[in-house]
Write a protein that binds this DNA or RNA. Structure first.
Length: 419
RNA sequence: CGGGGUGUAGUUCAUCGGUAGAACGUCCGGUUUGGGACCGGAAAGCAGGAGGUUCAAUUCCUCUCACCCCGACCA
């Protein structure tokens, strides 16, 4: 991608009202655009990041035999009335259909997936089944805030598992837990597994929390055994696993896994016929992961005063090629060649090809956008190119200070190897 | 949903009763080119919306909408 064609350009200042770090940096760097409180357009580079996170999530879900589907965002309210959540969930967006029927914008999908599975699953032979989707969710938060950390419309992965027994569900639950730990590691988030209440879903659940001052949850980390507890389930000031003392932290919840209560299966009559021909109730779990929230969380924990520092797995591009002295026809053609070489090598590259823009402005944009590798081509780095021997490029990692001068081959190796 | 704050050019902000100004960005011309360069010129505004007070309202008052922050909430 050529920077001159990229939509949109970066901003020097964050709009007023953008107070949280993730919102400021993501808006300034051109990843997101706010439409209203808690609702954002994901701009081309922002969408690329979300796509990369989603792809990692897909890979890990597929590894544990998840099957991807997409359910509607628009739900008939009847299903929500059946579970009682039409009134009990206060963040529910409600609207009217053409005939006056009540409709709901889905904040979660138990009400859709239970009837769906009930329709197709009737035998123990049909179970277990693991279904997930990556989809937009709606929650009418009384106070949306902090950029992508708390939206009214947001991107989420939700997985639902259905089993012939609680034991089977519990063993799958462990697999999901491991998949989650792999996902967060891969996208560059240190997520702590946290014991929490299950709200209307279940009695207990586990959350994946990323420690950051901007987090809105309070968690307690045991200094002795490392267990982590959400404050909502903590009755005394000692670790309930080992009795050790606890350290309080602010954290943002990026994932939450629940063994589901029986009541959903009862409401939607989700039964199966077992091997002895008897009807049994299906056991289920649900597993959420906030995709857009994870993007915000990454920025919260990985930035400096100049901008974002993307982890390699989720960065919109791998290389930010900065062309300086492009007024010089020789440098200009060398830069073009270099850009094409990266493309031929399947390296995702953003090429700052702007001619009348100062070096400082280009570096500032590169730092702001936060692509992992910055490669500079200029008069200085082109000097040796007339001799075929030693054409050196300048390469710098966004996360490091050090700059190296290396041949294209070595640059390519670095860029391709890591991550 | 309680408390507080803010709505003026694309963006950030000034003006605070006499009918709108800067910076950044944008466009044109020129000089520049390794950390947000410089000089000239230009375009850009129903002052969130409705009502009221006034000879006159961006400015004062009322209502409303939106956004931000603190708290409550967060299945």
């Amino acid at each position: 991608m050529k920077y001159s064609k990229l939509f949109p350009k970066t901003l020097k200042q964050a709009p007023s009202g953008a107070e949280s770090i993730n919102q400021q940096l993501l808006v300034r760097a051109g990843f997101i655009h706010q439409e209203m409180a808690g609702v954002y357009t994901y701009l081309p580079m922002g969408w690329k990041v979300l796509d990369k996170i989603s792809d990692i999530v897909r890979e890990e879900m597929d590894k544990i035999e998840g099957q991807e589907l997409v359910m509607p965002a628009l739900h008939p309210a009847d299903l929500w009335k059946k579970t009682g959540r039409f009134t009990s969930v206060d963040v529910l967006f409600k609207l009217k259909g053409a005939g006056g029927a009540d409709l709901v914008l889905g904040p979660t999908h138990e009400e859709i997936i239970y009837p769906l599975v009930a329709e197709y699953v009737s035998s123990y032979r049909d179970l277990p089944v693991y279904l997930y989707q990556i989809q937009v969710k709606f929650r009418n938060e009384p106070r949306a805030k902090a950029g992508l950390l708390r939206g009214r419309e947001f991107l989420m992965k939700d997985l639902y598992s259905f089993h012939t027994s609680d034991d089977d569900r519990n063993s799958y639950y462990k697999k999901v837990r491991e998949a989650y730990l792999r996902i967060f590691k891969r996208i560059g988030l240190k997520a702590l597994e946290t014991k929490a209440s299950g709200g209307t879903f279940s009695d207990l659940s586990e959350e994946f929390q990323v420690i950051t001052p901007s987090g809105e949850d309070t968690i307690f980390v045991c200094l002795k055994c490392g267990s982590v507890f959400n404050k909502e389930i903590l009755s005394d000031k000692k670790c309930s696993d080992c009795g050790g003392s606890l350290k309080q932290e602010k954290a943002i919840e990026v994932g939450n896994i629940f063994p589901l209560k029986r009541s959903f299966a009862e409401t939607f009559k989700l039964y199966f016929t077992n091997q002895s021909g008897q009807q049994e109730i299906v056991s289920a779990g649900c597993y959420g992961l906030g995709i857009s929230r994870a993007m915000g969380a990454i920025v919260e924990v990985s930035h400096d005063n100049k901008g974002i520092i993307w982890s390699e797995a989720v960065a919109p591009y791998r290389v930010h090629l900065v062309g300086l002295d492009l007024g010089d026809p020789h440098v200009e053609s060398e830069a073009e060649k270099l850009y094409k070489l990266f493309l031929v090598e399947n390296v995702e590259v953003l090429f700052d090809d702007r001619v009348n823009v100062s070096a400082g402005a280009k570096f500032a944009d590169a730092d702001l956008i936060g692509i992992p590798y910055r490669v500079v081509i200029s008069k200085k780095t082109c000097l040796t190119s007339s001799r075929n021997s030693g054409n050196k490029l300048e390469i710098k990692k966004r996360s490091e200070k050090e700059t190296k001068f290396l041949s294209f081959e070595k640059v390519l190796k670095i860029v391709k190897d890591s991550g």
